[in-house]
Amino acid sequence: MNIVKDIGLYSLLMYRVFVKPDRGRMFWKQLPKELEKLGLASLPIVIIISIFIGAIMTIQTKLNTENPLLPTYSTGLVTRDTLLLEFSSTIMCLILAGKVGSNIASEIGTMRITEQIDAIEIMGINSANYLILPKITAFVLMMPFLVIFSMAIGLTGGYLVGAFSDIITTADYLLGIQYAFIPYYVFYSVVKSLVFAFLISSVAAYYGYNAYGGALDVGKASTNAVVNSSILILFFNLLVTNLMLN
C-alpha cells in the first residue's frame, strides 16, 4: 500500500518539478552551484575508489587466472570489461547514492522542517521546481563525465599494479585493455548512469521534500533516500541491461 502511495506522491512531485522555471535567471544562477556541489565535489571520492578498485581487480583477476592456457592479455581484458560494464556505472552510482543522495535529501529535508520551503511557496514560487530541477539537471549532466573519468582512473589503477609490482607486466596489461574493445560498452554504461543519476537525485529530493517533523526525521529521510535509490539502481540495472545488451 505504501509503495503505491510513494509512487503516486513521487509522480505528483515530478510533475511539479518539470515545468518551465518561474524565473529562468534564478535557474541559471542555481545550476552552476549544483554542478559544483553534486558533480565536482564528487570527483575526489570517484578518483580514490576507482583507482583502488582498478588495481585490486587487476590483482584478483591475475591471481585467479593463473593458467598457462589462458592468453596473457586476459587479465587486462577482464579488468577493462568489468570496469566498463558494471563498476564505473552501477557500483559508482551506488556509492554516489550514499554521498549525493544523502546530501540532497538532508538539504531539502532541513529546508522543509525549518519552513524554508513554506517561505518559498508563500512568495508564490513553485518550490519543487526552484529547488529540485537544478539539482536533477546538474547531477544528470555531470554523471557521464564522472563515469568516463572513473573508467579512465580505474584502468590507470590497473596499470599502476603492472608498473609497481611483478604481478603483471605493463605490456600484457596494455595489450589486454586494448584487446577486442567494444565501444558500445561505454555507451551502454553512460546510458545506464544517466538513468541512475536521475533516480538518485529525484528519489532523494522526494524524501527530503516530504520530510515532516524534526532533525531526526531529516536523518530518516536521508536514510530512506539512500536505501531506496540503491534498490532502484539495482532494479533498473537489470532492466536497462536487458534492453541494451540482449
Partner: peptide
Amino acid sequence: RREVGMLFQGSALF
C-alpha cells in the same frame, strides 16, 4: 501569494 508576506514562527530564513 505574491500579494502576501509572511513571517514564520521560526523565521525560516534561507
